[in-house]
Every structure is written in structure tokens, then in C-alpha cells.
Write a protein that binds this DNA or RNA. Structure first.
Lengths: 143, 143
DNA sequence: CTATATACTTGTATTATACAAGCTGCGCAT
DNA sequence: ATGCGCAGCTTGTATAATACAAGTATATAG
């Protein structure tokens, strides 16, 4: 009995998810955890943003981002800039230290992924990158 | 500035992992959680197995599997068969109830993934299935 | 001016995991 | 035969990431 692509994807995604939970929580590659890395990355590539905007971006609860943002501030990777228009709001901007941490961490991760993908040829990498992106979009829309 | 496949994969995997953590913990599609589903699936397709073997299979701690196996037994989805050769060991075998739960859950998940992949054509699905499988293998070997 | 909505924080609970310590049974070396 | 280390499993404890709910302060609409 052949496994349909749908079956394969369903199973492999479930396995991957479980395994990534373990890895992302218990293995540290670099300085930053998962959340810190993504928040800094987002701020670096899309400019400073508030808690609400970041929560929307990642589809996580505002309270989750709020704590993660506090942690980043605590460590000196970002600072808060009050919104002049709105006394409740502020945006997070990256510090020099934050930029350095992001840079160094990006390199560590890049190396790890290079190792992970050593048996993937160039065409497969391109496909995988594209498909993962499309998959993420779908996950955000559907789930 | 073009994003290399490696960069894309690294970022998309990180995002995916974070999002899946949230989904798999807080959204329930069907009866079974993540772990229960995978354990039952494994038992269904590869025959009954002990805690140690399952832990090896999924690269998770024995204690983690032990608790998840207890939970499955508690719910009546599996029962323990003592190993006649070894008084310490046993294997988990699925009950009728377990088989039904797995079947019904598989359908629910399949539907959800069909919805998720609605914009993926057949070629993309095949590629994605194949690449995810290869990726999982690599994750197990490397990380 | 009051009522409701928004941006954020904080308190609490849940879940999945790991690591370490413990129990019991196995098997080998003396 | 027996005692000691090893293997399979369970249980205790800690940690991390998340959600939901309640609270505070500010903004805005009527």
C-alpha cells in the first residue's frame, strides 16, 4: 500500500513538530533562544515594532510576546521608544548589543543548518526553502 | 539582497517550529494529542513495542515516553503485555478502542492537512512529502 | 463626561519535555 | 551461589513556552 503525499506530509510534520519541540527547548545553538532570535530578526528586517504588531505577526498571544520583549530589554538587546501619539504604546528598537547577538547567532544557526542539509543538493534546497515558506503561509492562514 | 536557500530554510524552520509548538499544545484536532497519536501510529505500523524502543525511535527521553504510555493505558488505548523472557520489560499492544481512536483521528488530521495544502498542486505535495521525510532523517542524525 | 475599547503587564495554569534518583529484575564473574 | 553492575521502567522535580484571564492606564466615541 503506497503512502499518498498527503499521508506522508501529515505524518512527517507531526514527527517534525514533536522533535523540534524538544530541540528548541533543550538544545541551545548560540546565545539566543528561539523567541529572542525571531523577535530580533523581525525587528532587524522590518523595523521596530510594538508588542501587538509582533504578536499579530507570529500569531502568538500578546502576553507571550510581552514577556519575551521584557526579557530582551532586560538583557539589553532592545530598548523601548514611547509612541508620541499614544501614551500606552511603544516600539522596540534594537541596541548595538542586540544587533551583535543576532549576527553571531545567525551565523551559528546557519552553520548548524548547513550541516543539517549537507545531503541536500542545490535544487532540493531551493525547493525546500520555497515549500516551507508556502507551508508557513498556509499554517498562518488555516490553523 | 537575495535570500539564499539556506537562509530561507533556517528562518522558515524556526518560524514553523514556534508556531507548531503553539498549535500542537493548544489546538486539538481530534481526540488524541500529538504524542498519543504518534505512539499509536508507530504501534499500528511497526507492531507492539516497549518504552525503550519507542524512546529510541522518536529520540525522546525514556521518562517522557513512559508517562505518555501510561496515559495511553489509562485511557484504554493500549495494554501491557509482559515480556516472558524478561521480567522488567513489556510491550504495548493496541486495544480495539485504540485502533478506533487512531483511525478517527487520522481522518481528522488528514482533512486538516488537505485544507492546509489546498494551494499545493500534486507535484508540490510529492516534493514536500519527500523533502520533509529527508529533513526528518537529517534532524535525527544531526541534531 | 462617561462608557467602551486598546496597549500592555502580570498572575495563574497547562503541557511537553529533560535530568536524576529509585526500584526491580537480569546476567556475568568470581 | 552470590554479589555487583547493568538494563527497563517509573516517579520526583525543574524548566520553558505557551494561553487565558484579570488588572492598569490611556485613548476615543457618543
Amino acid at each position: 500500500m503506497e503512502r499518498s503525499p498527503l499521508e506522508a506530509i501529515e505524518l512527517e510534520m507531526t514527527i517534525l513538530s514533536r522533535r523540534l519541540t524538544s530541540i528548541s527547548t533543550y538544545k541551545k545553538y548560540g546565545i539566543l533562544d528561539h523567541s529572542a532570535y525571531l523577535l530580533l530578526h523581525q525587528i532587524a528586517s522590518n523595523g521596530s515594532a510594538g508588542v501587538k504588531a509582533l504578536a499579530d505577526e507570529f500569531h502568538l498571544d500578546i502576553s507571550t510576546i510581552s514577556r519575551q520583549a521584557s526579557a530582551l530589554e532586560q538583557k539589553g538587546y532592545v530598548f523601548r521608544v514611547p509612541d508620541p501619539q499614544d501614551g500606552r504604546a511603544y516600539t522596540l528598537q534594537m541596541t548595538e548589543l542586540g544587533a551583535e547577538a543576532l549576527k553571531s547567532d545567525t551565523e551559528v544557526r546557519r552553520d548548524k543548518f548547513a550541516q543539517l542539509l549537507q545531503d541536500f543538493n542545490e535544487a532540493e534546497r531551493e525547493q525546500l526553502g520555497r515549500l516551507l515558506q508556502k507551508l508557513n503561509d498556509a499554517v498562518f492562514r488555516v490553523m
